[in-house]
């Protein structure tokens, strides 16, 4: 059973809908016991980084998440803010993150007059780690829906799954062992996203 961690931010219904559509089963929960029993986790999130960390801490979720992810090595997929929370630190609110992947979350500072922040819309992505099972069966030209004002900078290239461009190239997918994060919204990205979610269910 996949558990979508409800820490009070984000569009959980659409992720649950999409998991169902690709043949999986997911529950939305903030209950420690349910999260403790999960065989796979999704960390969603739309909103501010500091608010996200504050909620995780206030709801007492941090230690169970640490145990599940770092000790039990249960797969976790962070989406959008959920990916950024995997990093050490964010400029948004100047706070620490979960710190599971050696990276930081920085604000877009663009010189362009045309491109805006938030980065909102569809973008083609380049896959750095083609052999990763999450990308099974995907074509070469794939696009995803993004909505974000901050982006993730990894210390090491080996944690970068895929990249996209918004004036600068940035990591839009990150990975470390059982931990995966996507900046874009697979649950709102047509067949491109459905394939990723199906791969997460089947192969990760």
């Amino acid at each position: 059973m996949i558990t979508i961690v409800d820490y009070g931010l984000g569009n959980l219904a659409s992720i649950k809908n999409m998991i169902k559509k690709v043949g999986g089963e997911a529950t939305i929960s903030s209950n420690l016991e349910e999260i403790g029993n999960a065989s796979k986790l999704i960390l969603p999130g739309v909103g501010a980084f500091n608010k996200g960390m504050e909620n995780i801490s206030n709801m007492g979720l941090q230690s169970i998440l640490n145990k599940k992810v770092l000790e039990d090595r249960v797969p976790i997929l962070g989406i959008c803010l959920g990916m950024q929370l995997l990093t050490n630190y964010s400029e948004e609110g100047d706070v620490k993150g979960l710190g599971w992947i050696d990276a930081k979350t920085a604000r877009f500072r663009l010189s362009s007059k045309i491109l805006k922040v938030p980065h909102m819309g569809w973008a083609d992505i380049s896959i750095n780690q083609k052999q990763h099972p999450i990308f099974s069966g995907l074509e070469d030209t794939i696009r995803y829906y993004f909505v974000h004002s901050y982006y993730v900078r990894c210390k090491s290239e080996k944690n970068v799954l895929c990249t996209a461009k918004h004036e600068i190239d940035f990591a839009c997918g990150i990975v470390k062992d059982n931990i995966i994060g996507f900046q874009f919204h697979p649950e709102k990205s047509h067949k491109f996203g459905m394939t990723l979610l199906k791969n997460y269910i089947d192969y990760c």
Binding site: A13, S14, N17, M18, Y145, V147, H185, K188, S189, H190, K191, G193, M194
Partner: peptide, 8 residues
């Protein structure tokens, strides 16, 4: 509608 929608 939201349940049917594969896009935002």
């Amino acid at each position: 509608m939201a349940g049917e929608c594969f896009m935002p």
